[in-house]
Design a protein around this nucleic acid. Structure first.
Lengths: 143, 143
DNA sequence: CGGTATCCCGTGTGATACTG
DNA sequence: CAGTATCACACGGGATACCG
């Protein structure tokens, strides 16, 4: 017998949302979720983490090639931000020419898992989204 | 016996990443993942979806109260964008005073699940992140 | 190579005012 | 109530030039 435990799931989801909103109501910097989600939402962060997921370690210009379209400046900024939040480690070798190796920390790896799920979601629902966009366009043309 | 199938998981993750990057290399607007992730990354979209997850349906000003700090303009823009992508439905009742009810579509609900996982991740790792930030600050002070 | 510093422009976003 | 319209402006982010 297959149990469609929709109601149970609904309850769990509701609870989760309530929890999120409890946290969300704290002020400014003190709100961790608002704060963290704002960071992760950044598109360059997402792509940089994905790129670092491909290589175990990567150097600056390697990353720049992988993350299509990112400028030197934004890669620097993004990497610093990720480092600051403990998602990426930065190993400097005092050689000439200088070498710097970036890698995901274990925390970063754990986030990578989340990113991949998001990416999978995006992939598997792209058709629905595309369809919705077409509908929306037509709707606008009618009025 | 507990099997730590790290290697298997690694393989899966690698494969997933490669898949994402295959898609990512297509050009401009044609890249669905780049496109979709960029949308979802928007912080107002995230919070609006979470808010809509709390109520089955919600009216404009209800949402405005729930999504702490959002301006009228940005709520409008965000809702339109979500509607355009098929995540939110918009039901207009031609009454006076006018009434408009927003709700998550099934697609939106499915995305909500993903958002909640992200939020959970953020919650359960906030201490590590906070610690990383402290370390980073100190590191900067040393040099 | 792996950055930092500076400039500068577009647009994202808040504030305010008006409308059906 | 549920928006639209307009303006003003800070800030993200690209281009460029320079440094250790």
């Amino acid at each position: 017998m297959i149990v469609t435990n929709t109601e149970n799931q609904e309850l769990t989801i509701e609870n989760k949302i309530d929890k999120v909103f409890d946290m969300e109501h704290c002020e400014g910097i003190l709100c961790p979720i608002k704060d963290i989600l704002a960071h992760l939402g950044d598109k360059w962060s997402i792509f940089t983490i994905l790129a670092l997921g491909q290589n175990k370690v990567a150097r600056f210009n390697e990353l720049k090639k992988q993350v299509n379209g990112i400028s030197q400046r934004m890669l620097t900024v993004t990497l610093r931000s990720l480092e600051e939040n403990g998602l990426v480690s930065r190993q400097i070798y005092p050689e000439i020419p200088p070498r710097v190796e970036y890698a995901l920390t274990s925390l970063g790896h754990s986030l990578l898992g989340q990113m991949l799920q998001l990416a999978e979601w995006a992939t598997s629902h792209r058709d629905e989204i595309e369809e919705a966009r077409q509908n929306f366009k037509e709707k606008k043309l009618v009025f």
